[in-house]
């Protein structure tokens, strides 16, 4: 029963999301901040190495089962994410994925493409900030 419910909800969400996909290209910069607890993130010009290290650890523990940097697994590859999304959107997607795939246009589009809703991994806002710092580091490296 629960299985069918999940699928029904999945379809109900996936259909409008697929329709809503028109006009949004996930590979391009998306200006939205998303839906969730994070309203404004102020970024320093330089990276905080402590925070990067912490973010990398959390990434390995809680994200790599679905996300790699350069390869699609369950979810999209994440290299370059800080160039395509605003920091607020990234943190809201991590912290509030359930509401995001219901309300945010880009998140809806992504659900229509990947079919598996982003899971809530119960990370704190502090942890999400560390993850963001790690992604910034990854994207800074690429520049070199």
């Amino acid at each position: 029963m629960k299985g069918w419910m999940t699928m029904a909800v999945g379809i109900a969400l996936a259909v409008p999301a697929a329709l809503g996909a028109q006009g949004i290209n996930p590979d391009e910069f998306y200006p939205g901040k998303g839906v969730g607890p994070v309203d404004t993130v102020v970024l320093a010009d330089t990276l905080d190495p402590e925070l990067v290290k912490k973010g990398e650890e959390i990434f390995k523990l809680k994200c790599t089962a679905c996300h790699q940097l350069d390869q699609r697994v369950v979810g999209p590859p994440l290299r370059g994410i800080t160039k395509r999304r605003r920091p607020e959107w990234i943190m809201n997607m991590i912290l509030n994925p359930t509401e995001m795939v219901q309300k945010d246009d880009l998140a809806k589009t992504l659900l229509g493409m990947y079919y598996v809703p982003m899971t809530n991994q119960n990370v704190t806002e502090e942890d999400a900030r560390a993850l963001l710092e790690y992604f910034r580091q990854v994207d800074a490296e690429e520049k070199k």
Binding site: G3, G10, A14, V116, P117
Partner: peptide
């Protein structure tokens, strides 16, 4: 065995 997602 537990229907977990669209790709279960």
């Amino acid at each position: 065995t537990d229907f977990c997602s669209a790709l279960h």
